[in-house]
Amino acid sequence: MRTIARVAVSVFRESVRNKVLYSLVCFAVLLISTAYLIGQLTAGQDIKIIKDLGLAAISIFGLLIAVFLGITLVWKEIEQRSIYSMLAKPLSRSEFVLGKYAGLALTLVVNVGLMGLAYYAMLAYMATTFPPEARAAWPAPAVDPALMKALGLILVELLLVTAVALFFSTFSSPFLSAVLTLAIWVIGTFDADLRNFESVVASPSAAALARGLYYLIPNFGAFDVKLQVVHGLPVSWDYVVTTAAYGAVYVVLLLTGAVAIFSRRDFK
């Protein structure tokens, strides 16, 4: 466990010194802030638009960070051959992979935390600029604790995306890993449609394939509760915990696969 933690801290340190990462986080914070301006253009809908855009910005930039870090971290070690000296040290290949993932997870937690803070700060500022009667008409307060549920599930979704990216990066190039990870994410986002695919296609084989993908690929749509929290609709803690556990099961499966592949690989 200690070895995994040491590798994780090293990954986090590397991320902290990564300029690309800073650019993405700054851009996300900027976009969250511009949600305020866009909200001004939509009479009566402003707070919902701002909340929605802010969460979408965190989700999209978090996705970019997760894919970027997930596909490059292990690949870079192999390509630049820094892995040669590292694997000669007293750590197993599984500890190496799990340490890398833990470091990425730590990086994501900090990044989503920073973006979340910027988001809440902007919403708190918004609340002060509206008259009390306008605020009374909102379905939920500006600084709504329920938004934490959406942020939490975004984080779980990003941790899952990172696990997918890390899994692919153990055996393929960054480009292919990025394409495959994004493909999995897109398919997983529309997972519910795959379930009922036979109602829109005549081919039984296409329907069977869609059904197979539905069971195989994680349902990323389940992590999206933005609409509910923005409109003040209830999202139970049971749902949040169950969905997080669902994501955790996939993360464990993907990491097991990544470790199995990485442990058998030749580093030529």
């Binding site: 340190r13 010194r17 051959r81 820094s82 040669y84 000296s85 000669a88 007293p90 750590l91 197993s92």
Partner: peptide
């Protein structure tokens, strides 16, 4: 892993984490 504690290795044309 117990053996790795007792050995040292310099690879050919070594490369290390260049941010460190």
């Amino acid at each position: 892993v117990a053996v790795k504690r007792r050995i040292g290795f310099l690879p050919e044309n070594p490369y290390f984490y260049d941010h460190l």
